[in-house]
Amino acid sequence: MNKIDFKKLDQDFKKSLKSNDFQQVLADLDEWFKTAKKEDLNYNSALFLKGYILEFGNKDIENANIYYEQVKTIDNLWFTLGNELIGQSPEKAILCYSKVKKDIVQNNLNFNIGLCYEILKDTNKSNEYFNKINKETVFRETMQNPLIFSLVMFLIACIFAVCKAKQGWLIASCVVGAFGIMATWTEFKTYMKISNPKTKFWRS
């Protein structure tokens, strides 16, 4: 069993992002790798952390790439880290987003980069990325699936009611339908946020 708690290691890594001092985190990470197995649920994230530390802490991009090449779904990890850094360090968040090559919806990426530049009070760059958002695809990417799900559950509830199905089934379909409506509302706010980045609606 690994003596290093990866959850704590990950927390220490995030704390070190501000100072860019990864010396202790790197030592703990190397210790963690000594007993870690590739089947470990955290192994993929550990590879990513090691690559990041080597690149941005040690300025060793060559060895960093060795670790990056082993990381699965690396774009998702870059995007997630960028999201965590927006408020703390928008410049570093932009660096993370610039690493994303695929697997992330481009509208989301452009919106987040635009938001970073807005925080940095660079209106020109912010507008540049906001203007890249393809409004024609935003609805499909955010609203389409939740709407379909809600409509299907509503139809099922109606069918149960017409057929006088058992009360339990009717209640269950209504509950699931309610969750669908909640999901639709959440995605509607996302849709408004991304399709109208220059408005104040999404800030509420």
Rank of each mutant, 00 (worst) to 15 (best):
A172F: 13
N110P: 01
N196E: 14
W32R: 02
M182R: 10
F48G: 04
M182W: 11
N2P: 15
L151E: 07
I53S: 01
K72R: 10
I94K: 04
E136W: 03
K102T: 05
I171A: 09
K38R: 13
T80A: 15
N83E: 15
P197D: 00
Y191A: 03
C96P: 09
S195V: 07
E55Y: 03
D122Y: 04
N110D: 15
S150C: 14
L9T: 01
N44R: 05
M182Q: 09
I148D: 10
L170I: 13
T73Q: 12
N112W: 08
Y67P: 01
I148W: 10
G87K: 12
L81A: 07
S195C: 07
L147C: 09
F154C: 12
K37W: 00
Y52E: 09
P90M: 00
E55D: 05
E55F: 02
W169K: 14
K92R: 11
K121D: 11
Y68Q: 01
L170W: 01
D75T: 01
L147V: 02
T199Y: 01
A183T: 05
K72N: 14
K135Q: 14
K38S: 11
I104P: 00
K164E: 15
I74W: 08
N20K: 14
W32S: 01
C158E: 09
P146L: 08
D21Q: 04
Y68I: 06
Y117S: 00
S173V: 00
I74D: 06
A178K: 10
K59V: 02
L26R: 06
I104L: 07
M182K: 13
I74N: 03
K34E: 12
W32H: 06
F56M: 05
W32Q: 03
E69N: 15
A46K: 06
A27Q: 09
L115Y: 15
K59H: 12
V176Q: 03
Y52F: 14
L85T: 09
S126I: 00
F149N: 12
N127K: 14
F188I: 06
L41F: 08
Y52W: 13
K7R: 11
W78S: 03
N108K: 13
I181Q: 11
D10M: 05
D28F: 07
A161T: 15
A157I: 02
I133D: 13
M182F: 12
N110I: 06
K99H: 07
E84H: 11
V175E: 08
